[in-house]
């Protein structure tokens, strides 16, 4: 527990209201866009811009405060707790989609196929439907498609992400040993591998849409496939951007062995994204 003596309490914060307004305008913009209202796109751009400005301003403020020694040990603990609980909330978010995949594969699709007490359901609704996986359901929603295999790009991406976890840890060792060169090289590799992953995933999606007939609309298989991998890909992007900021700060000479919360938080987030991918590779691609 910290001694509260020098716990830094900021007075007056202007970025939160900017961020809130930006987020609200952006989401209202998306809603308007979905409703076919012409003002939607403009609102999305305005809101997004405000949100990005807020992120830049807020993080710049925090890094200046951190580098000028305003955060004591207690503040560091609060930040670490904050990050851990945030990652826990992210785990629960992904759990919903993993749970959906589990439920549909093990319960609802077999039920549609007449398993257990649901034989009558099948006879009445879709007597011709056979429960298999992958499936786009008895209505063959989205038409014929080819499921995504595991051993091409996805496997390559697994190796890429696992390697990036290693380079991230290598960079951390560099930071702890005051080897600035190793820190920067390690981070460069991590960020590079992260964006390479995203690029390969973009290629994979392109193939799915243009050659395999696999889309977000391909029944429950397409829905769960793109929802899980899509949200994961989005998190890889976010993680890579966070790591880029940490890289930039490392270049500027920030972080000491005893004070580098931003690096730790980014690394934790990156490992979290890594673990989610392993789950995806097993449950979405392999099984």
């Amino acid at each position: 527990m910290s001694t509260n003596d020098a716990y830094y309490i900021p007075h007056k914060a202007t970025w939160p209201i900017v961020g809130t307004a930006g987020l609200m305008i952006m989401l209202a913009g998306v809603a308007n866009f979905l409703n076919g209202s012409p003002i939607g796109t403009t609102m999305i751009y305005v809101g997004l811009l405000m949100f990005i400005v807020m992120l830049g301003g807020w993080f710049a403020l925090q890094s200046v405060e951190s580098e000028t020694g305003m955060y004591n040990h207690g503040v560091g603990i609060s930040y670490r707790m904050g990050m851990m609980w945030f990652i826990f909330s992210e785990i629960m978010f992904f759990a919903v989609f993993f749970g959906t995949l589990w439920y549909t594969r093990n319960l609802s699709v077999p039920w549609l196929g007449g398993e257990g007490a649901k034989a009558a359901t099948q006879q009445i609704l879709w007597p011709a439907f056979e429960a298999t996986w992958p499936t786009n359901g008895p209505g063959k929603v989205g038409g014929e498609f080819e499921p995504m295999g595991a051993w091409g790009l996805p496997f390559l991406n697994t190796l890429i992400l696992l390697t990036s976890g290693v380079t991230c840890t290598w960079a951390h060792h560099g930071l702890l040993a005051k080897k600035r060169d190793q820190l920067i090289k390690g981070l460069l590799a991590t960020v590079g591998l992260g964006f390479l992953f995203v690029a390969f995933q973009a290629i994979e999606y392109h193939e799915a849409y243009t050659e395999m007939g696999l889309t977000l609309g391909s029944g429950i298989y397409g829905s769960t496939f793109f929802m899980l991998t899509g949200f994961h890909g989005f998190h890889v992007c976010v993680g890579a951007i966070i790591l880029s900021v940490v890289l930039f700060r490392s270049w500027k000479g920030h972080f000491q062995p005893e004070n580098h919360f931003a690096f730790e938080a980014a690394a934790w987030y990156w490992h979290f994204v890594d673990v989610v991918w392993l789950g995806l590779f097993i449950f979405v691609y392999l099984m």
Partner: peptide, 10 residues
């Protein structure tokens, strides 16, 4: 998507 639509397997 077909998460909650039985026709698509949801």
């Amino acid at each position: 998507t077909s998460f909650f639509d039985a026709a698509g397997g949801g």
